[in-house]
Design a protein around this nucleic acid. Structure first.
Lengths: 332, 332
DNA sequence: TCTAATTTGTGCGTATGTATG
DNA sequence: GCATACATACGCACAAATTAG
């Protein structure tokens, strides 16, 4: 038991003394990677402590990534880096351009002693489950973007529920958790309403929507708009079905679909914003510059990242709607 | 007993080490369908284990359909293509738009049961070291983008060296590893040479270069070009120093810098491709569409991802230069 | 295959001191 | 002075995992 000591010295909490003594052993090299720590019961007996006190110390070290535990075996040294004070688990759906803004803004809001690990579930519930289950007990906070996956609730319930934050989409079943999310239904409906006058010069409005990847709220917002307009609406579940025709307008969510559409329009010699209309979801720097500007319905992803970081730092448990803006440009 | 090993590594449960070592033998082809596994007693004696420990490992593999047992005969490999969960460690420098193409192409080349975990070192050698050290033994393959970090060799050496692949930049010290990389020096030089005629209408060519993030090869290629042209060349290490002037051309690597420049040009009312010239590094879908098209010097990131995936699947140990193309558009 | 020892993981209840309003 | 919240510490019980014999 040479790596741990507790001498009921003034003020210092006992569990912190344990943490500190292990940190020191790591720094002076007497504890090495892979070494086994004394068991919880051994420490308890040696220093006449409660089991919980020792557990608290070991848990802190575990969440900082310094030690790891194997149920039924013991605690082992995993990393010698004592500089990390907090670890945050971030689970996104997929990697794409605007997630860059979100991630970078989130990361920048923390100091360098906070480690942020990012994972992607790619809309695969098995991957989602595996990544979450493997992360249990290893992080201080869990930021999860469930996207439109179903039955995530039971999986997320395994995490400490006061350390979970939900991002972007916010299904009914997860409403107990704090969150920064988009109100897709209203954002879509309101934006389309605002665009109504401009839309009137087109004879049809087409939505290109992927059931797998995109939020149902958008679809609901789009369908709701049907009751408020005379323009015939159409929904396509793949770009394959879409043919670009003069006089039609298109609401596109995925950027790959957007580029397909823009190319088709170019090939057909159709003037964007005149003969065909384009509305795109999710603004990025370049959409202002493409074809004289693409009209976008968008949330501010940097803002989302900042808000989330602020909530975690201030231990706030709100449910925040991330602001949405309509950027009207020449494409519609 | 070459397919199984137990070396109480980092506290991992022994039965899990057995499972893992058999999985690895299946992956690298040294164990094939129909092969007999060593008997439970042989394994027990060889590694001084309890019979139950070995049994537990074999049972798990049996449950997963990977091996089967015949009473009185022994355990045999049943199939290779079941859900052997492969884990791949990917370490990028930072998250940005064209890494999306690379990552997605890489991922798409594998079946859904392959888990790819992605990490970012943000050009910080300490982070680089920590992430690698902590991943040792947890993954089947390691894909690393050292970017322009120095002295990565000693850190990478800790990984199993037949499982390491280097991406994008390929410094001298890492030339022992298989790799898919860009030849920045020649790509830059050759592209500029091809653009020479077009460049002649500009009075100066400016490079905007970040020492921290961008490959030295680009700088060398740019400097090499100096000997072949009469156009005065300038290097800026930050966009702060750059003023957009009529008659000048700019080679921009970072997309954020590109957008800054384009906006500055717009604000000054300078016609892109006429009064000022722009060359950008790394093509993305949208660069074809911005301002009538941005000229790019680019590698094919999707191709890079596919090549890498293919190398891993076929156990190839090549060093492949990823093709570079010059896409001449209206911005120069 | 069964039993046993050890260890981690989790949940619940309780008590105390400190800071806050 | 009082109520409240929070961190710290203790005790107990039981579940599940790991390993040995």
């Amino acid at each position: 038991m040479k790596h741990i000591y507790v001498e009921n010295q003034a003020g210092q909490p006992k569990y912190k003394q344990i943490v500190k003594s292990i940190e020191e052993s790591l720094l002076n090299g007497s504890l090495r990677k892979g070494d086994k720590l004394p068991s919880i019961n051994e420490v308890r007996d040696r220093f006449s402590l409660s089991r919980d006190t020792v557990l608290m110390a070991f848990n802190e070290l575990k969440m900082r990534g310094i030690i790891e535990s194997f149920s039924g075996k013991g605690y082992y040294v995993r990393s010698l880096d004592t500089d990390i004070s907090q670890k945050i688990f971030v689970l996104f759906d997929e990697l794409n351009a605007f997630k860059e803004d979100l991630y970078n803004a989130f990361l920048k809001s923390f100091s360098r002693d906070v480690e942020v690990d990012i994972y992607f579930h790619h809309f695969n519930i098995k991957v989602f489950e595996k990544l979450i289950n493997e992360s249990i007990g290893n992080y201080h906070y869990y930021v999860i973007m469930p996207a439109n996956l179903k039955e995530t609730c039971e999986i997320i319930r395994n995490l400490p529920n006061d350390r979970v934050y939900i991002l972007d989409q916010f299904p009914e079943e997860l409403k107990v958790y704090p969150s920064v999310f988009q109100d897709f239904e209203n954002d879509t409906f309101n934006s389309l309403s605002q665009l109504h006058v401009r839309l009137k010069k087109y004879s049809q409005l087409h939505l290109i929507f992927s059931e797998e990847k995109q939020p149902q709220g958008m679809l609901r917002g789009f369908k709701k708009f049907e009751n408020y307009t005379d323009i015939p609406l159409h929904i396509h579940y793949s770009t394959e079905d879409v043919s670009v025709k003069s006089g039609h307008a298109y609401l596109v969510i995925d950027d790959r679909d957007l580029f397909k559409l823009l190319k088709l329009a170019k090939d057909s010699g159709l003037k964007i914003g005149k003969e065909i209309g384009i509305i795109s979801y999710n603004d990025t720097l370049y959409k202002e510059l493409i074809e004289g500007g693409i009209t976008t319905i968008t949330t501010d992803f940097s803002e989302m990242g900042k808000t989330l970081a602020h909530m975690i730092k201030s231990n706030s448990k709100e449910k925040v709607i991330n602001p949405n803006t309509l950027k009207i440009r020449n494409s519609l």
